[in-house]
Amino acid sequence: MRETPKSRIALDAIKAWKLIGILIAAALWLVSIIGMILYYFWGFPIWIVASIGAISAICTYLFIFLVPKLRWKKWRYEILEQEIYIQHGILITTRTLVPMIRVQHVDTKQGPILKKYRLASVTISTAASTHEIPALLEEDASDLRDRISALARVDEDDV
C-alpha cells in the first residue's frame, strides 16, 4: 500500500467548516423552535418535538465540534510529476490517483465562507470526473493550480 500523502489543507479549514456547521445547526434549532410553537399552540405530539430537539443537539455537537477536526486530520494530498494523490474520509478513507495526462483543466473556487478565512479550493477536472482539494490558503491554491496546469501541459507535450 502507498504511503499517506504529505501535504495538508489549511488549518483554517476547521474554522470554515465549523461556521458551516453553525449554519446547519441553526436551521435545525429553528425547526425545533417551530415544533415547540406547534406543540404549545396546536397540541403537536411532544415526542416529535423532543426527537427534533435531540437530533438538533446531536447534530450541533457533530457538525460544530467533532466532524471539522476529524475531516481536517484526514484530508491529505500530494502532487507528483505523473499524478495527483488525494486522500480523505472520516469513516471510509478514499484514496484517489488522478493521472496528469488525464487532467483537462484546473480551477480555484471560493465561496463567501472560504473568502472570510482567505481560503480557496482547487478543482481538477478530467473527462470522467472532477476532484477537489478544499480549503487551501489563497496563495497556495493559486500556486497549486498553476503547478498542476504546468505538469499536465508537460505530459500532453510528451505524448
Score class of each variant (00 low, 15 high):
74 K>H: 14
74 K>D: 07
74 K>P: 06
74 K>Q: 14
75 W>A: 08
75 W>D: 06
75 W>T: 11
75 W>V: 08
75 W>N: 09
75 W>H: 11
76 R>T: 07
77 Y>G: 00
77 Y>H: 02
79 I>A: 04
79 I>S: 06
79 I>L: 15
79 I>N: 06
79 I>M: 07
81 E>I: 04
81 E>Y: 08
81 E>S: 09
82 Q>Y: 13
83 E>A: 08
84 I>Y: 05
85 Y>P: 02
87 Q>P: 03
87 Q>H: 05
87 Q>W: 03
87 Q>M: 10
87 Q>G: 01
88 H>F: 14
88 H>L: 08
89 G>W: 04
90 I>G: 02
90 I>R: 02
92 I>W: 13
92 I>Q: 09
92 I>K: 13
93 T>P: 02
93 T>G: 03
94 T>G: 09
95 R>P: 04
95 R>I: 14
96 T>A: 04
96 T>C: 07
96 T>R: 08
97 L>C: 11
98 V>N: 02
98 V>M: 05
99 P>C: 06
100 M>W: 01
101 I>P: 05
101 I>G: 08
101 I>L: 12
102 R>D: 11
102 R>E: 11
102 R>T: 09
102 R>F: 13
102 R>A: 13
103 V>T: 01
103 V>F: 02
104 Q>F: 14
105 H>Q: 08
105 H>Y: 11
105 H>G: 12
105 H>F: 10
106 V>C: 04
106 V>S: 02
107 D>C: 04
107 D>W: 06
107 D>Y: 12
107 D>K: 12
108 T>H: 03
108 T>A: 05
108 T>C: 02
109 K>W: 15
109 K>M: 11
109 K>D: 15
110 Q>T: 09
112 P>S: 07
113 I>Q: 00
113 I>K: 00
113 I>S: 00
113 I>N: 00
114 L>A: 13
115 K>N: 15
115 K>P: 03
115 K>L: 12
115 K>S: 15
115 K>Q: 11
116 K>M: 12
116 K>E: 01
118 R>M: 12
118 R>A: 15
118 R>F: 13
120 A>K: 02
121 S>R: 03
122 V>S: 03
122 V>K: 00
122 V>A: 05
123 T>V: 10
123 T>H: 06
125 S>A: 13
125 S>N: 12
126 T>Q: 01
126 T>P: 01
127 A>R: 07
127 A>G: 08
127 A>M: 09
128 A>I: 07
129 S>T: 12
130 T>Y: 10
131 H>D: 10
131 H>Y: 14
133 I>W: 04
133 I>A: 06
134 P>F: 01
134 P>W: 00
135 A>G: 03
136 L>N: 02
137 L>I: 07
137 L>C: 09
137 L>N: 14
138 E>G: 11
138 E>D: 08
138 E>C: 10
138 E>Y: 14
139 E>Y: 13
139 E>D: 15
140 D>E: 15
140 D>F: 12
142 S>R: 14
142 S>Q: 14
143 D>E: 15
143 D>W: 12
144 L>N: 03
144 L>Q: 09
145 R>V: 07
145 R>W: 09
145 R>T: 04
146 D>N: 11
146 D>M: 09
146 D>L: 12
147 R>T: 12
147 R>G: 02
147 R>H: 08
147 R>Q: 10
148 I>V: 10
149 S>N: 15
